[in-house]
Structure formats: structure tokens, C-alpha cells
């Protein structure tokens, strides 16, 4: 971990310990959520998109300011059929259209034309001080299954092929392993699944997204490999690998330092169009914004909903 990132974590932890959670609503003014607004917005997400559920997480990591059974929002086994990096390459190669809607904070859902990159920086949640090392190449990281500790792990094949498992059953569908039924063999290797969770970040007063990745055989991916499924504009800037606040282990997370500012822009755009945004819709807007960071992870958020009480 980079030193500056650690210092920041220590600072953030201290501030979280000594300050109370937000209780006054400021979502229209600052794009942030109070604790009770987070619960309200979460209840609405679970009701409209039932693949999401509330969970209580690890008992030892429970936050007293949230209801015990509503600590985190989680959706499991979300498909991710292609790597974000390859999607962007194809998109840029085909000279794709500009999806960015001016500078109003709506980010492209896919890659964007190269020439725009420099002046759009303002919209990207940037995190220079917390940057992950650029040197490590994601391709070279061994998976948990991998060869790193070859000598330590006994060779199971020696035992297992002689094991006493005898199963000859014509009613079992024979397949190497069940994956996406794409005709193209490459897709077997591309099919990953994710557990996506949303926590409440007390310091930034916004939701925060965490990603746990699995390969095509549903074996845990090293968090570093998750970066392949993050829009390359964000991969090295805004995604960090940290201890999950409610679950065991290290997980990739989209750092929330700019979430409030971007959400404020989105809310401003809605209000300029005469739509009065309602706080229980916050997570739908938030997840739409997150889709620009993780464009190929197909989690649910309703697209065609009423954004708020319209003025007409």
C-alpha cells in the first residue's frame, strides 16, 4: 500500500471515530446522504431490484449507526461477460460516438474518444494522492489457484484420479463445466461473475461500491485482476484494494472521494430540467453513475423509472 494512502486511511478512521454520523439531509446541496437516507434509498433499491438484498455482514464489524440487519446491500453472481479493457479498445477502434452529455456529470457508459480525455478529467473521480502503483502489470498476477506456491500445495491429481468417486450416470449432463452458453469458446474464459456490495461511507457520507470477482469456475479472483473489469480511465485512479468494512478479506472498491461532487452534478442537471429528485431514488442514480466505472458488470438498476416528482 502506498504510504499516502495509509496516512489517509488513518486520518479517515480517526475522523470517523470522533464525529457522529450525518443526520441532517444535504443530498440536494452536496450530493451526500445521511444514514437514514441511505437506509431509505436502500429499501427502495431492494424493493425495485429484488436481486439486491440487505445483509448484516460480519457481526464483529457491525456499525452501530446502521440497523443490524441493514448494514450492507449486496447482489451476488452478477455476470461480467467481457473485460472492460477490451470493450474500450474495440469502441475506440470503431471511432465510437461521444456519449458524454456536455459537462453535466453524466459519464460515458463505455469508452470515450481519445481526444476528449484531457478536458474531461474534471468529471472523473480522481485520487492522485491515493494512486495505486502503475508499475504492476495486471497480466502477471497469479490467481489464487495459480503457480505462486507450487511447492507448497500437494499435487491433488496424484490422489484424486485414483479416488473412490465412481459416477456413471446417463442422466447427468456431461459438460466440461457449465458456463455461459455462447457458441464462441473464448467466452468461456471471459465469463466472470461478481458479488457487488454497497456500504455507507461515514467519512464521505456517500454509498461506496465493493467488488468481489470470481473466475469461470466460480473460484475467487485476486482483487488486482478485478482492475481488468474497471473502465481503464478509472482502473488506476479511483479503484483501491482495501479491507471490506463488513466482510472478511481484501476487496476492490471504487474510492468515494468524488462521489458526492458527481452526484451533486447529476442532481443539478435533473433540477435544471424541472425534475425534483427524491432521496429514495439516490441509489438508482448512483448505480447508473457507477456503470460508467464498471461498464461490463451487469448488476441491476432500473433504467426506466420516474426520477422524482416532476414539476409538470
Amino acid at each position: 500500500m502506498v504510504l499516502s494512502q495509509k496516512l489517509h486511511e488513518a486520518f479517515k478512521g480517526t475522523v470517523e471515530r470522533i464525529t457522529g454520523p450525518r443526520t441532517v439531509s444535504a443530498f440536494k446541496e452536496k450530493g451526500v446522504l445521511s444514514v437514514s437516507e441511505f437506509v431509505t434509498a436502500g429499501d427502495n433499491l431492494v424493493a425495485k431490484c429484488p436481486t439486491w438484498s440487505w445483509e448484516s455482514g460480519e457481526p464483529g464489524k457491525r456499525k452501530p449507526y446502521l440497523p443490524p440487519e441493514k448494514q450492507i446491500l449486496i447482489t451476488r453472481n452478477v455476470p461480467c461477460l467481457r473485460r472492460a479493457a477490451s470493450v474500450e479498445e474495440e469502441y475506440e477502434a470503431s471511432g465510437g460516438e461521444v456519449l458524454l452529455d456536455g459537462d453535466d456529470g453524466w459519464l460515458a457508459t463505455h469508452g470515450k474518444p481519445k481526444e476528449n480525455k484531457s478536458d474531461e478529467d474534471d468529471n472523473l473521480p480522481s485520487m492522485e494522492s491515493l494512486e495505486i502503483s502503475k508499475k504492476s502489470s495486471i497480466k502477471q498476477i497469479p490467481s489464487y489457484m495459480g503457480a505462486e506456491d507450487d511447492d507448497d500445495i500437494p499435487d491433488m491429481a496424484d490422489f484424486d484420479d485414483n479416488s473412490n468417486v465412481i459416477e456413471n450416470d446417463p442422466a447427468t449432463l456431461q459438460s466440461t463445466y457449465i458456463v455461459a452458453h455462447e457458441p464462441d469458446d473464448d467466452n468461456i474464459l471471459r465469463t466472470r461473475t461478481y458479488d457487488v456490495s454497497i456500504t455507507y461511507d461515514k467519512y464521505y457520507q456517500t454509498p461506496r461500491v465493493w467488488l468481489t470477482g470470481y473466475d469461470e469456475a466460480r473460484m475467487l479472483l485476486q482483487p488486482e485482476l478485478v482492475l481488468e473489469d474497471v473502465s481503464q480511465d478509472h482502473a488506476r485512479k479511483t479503484v483501491t484494494i482495501e479491507d471490506h468494512p463488513h466482510l472478511p478479506g481484501k476487496h476492490a472498491s471504487i474510492h468515494p472521494c468524488r462521489h458526492g461532487a458527481v452526484m451533486k452534478k447529476i442532481i443539478d442537471v435533473l433540477m435544471s430540467r424541472g425534475v425534483e429528485p427524491e432521496v429514495d431514488k439516490y441509489l438508482f442514480l448512483f448505480l447508473k453513475f457507477m456503470a460508467s466505472v464498471i461498464p461490463t458488470i451487469e448488476y441491476d438498476y432500473t433504467m426506466d423509472f420516474d426520477l422524482g416528482s416532476s414539476s409538470n
Binding site: 484424486d160 484420479d161 468417486v165 459438460s175 469456475a217 478479506g249
Partner: peptide, 18 residues
């Protein structure tokens, strides 16, 4: 018994890192 990538074999995961 679940197959491991089409083979009759157990699985193994290393969590030393975490």
C-alpha cells in the same frame, strides 16, 4: 460429486494473502 473443470478432483484455494 462436483467435477473440477471436468475432472474428478478436489479444489484448492490459498488465502495466505488475506
Amino acid at each position: 460429486w462436483e467435477l473440477n473443470k471436468g475432472r474428478k478432483a478436489s479444489r484448492c484455494i490459498s488465502l495466505a494473502q488475506s
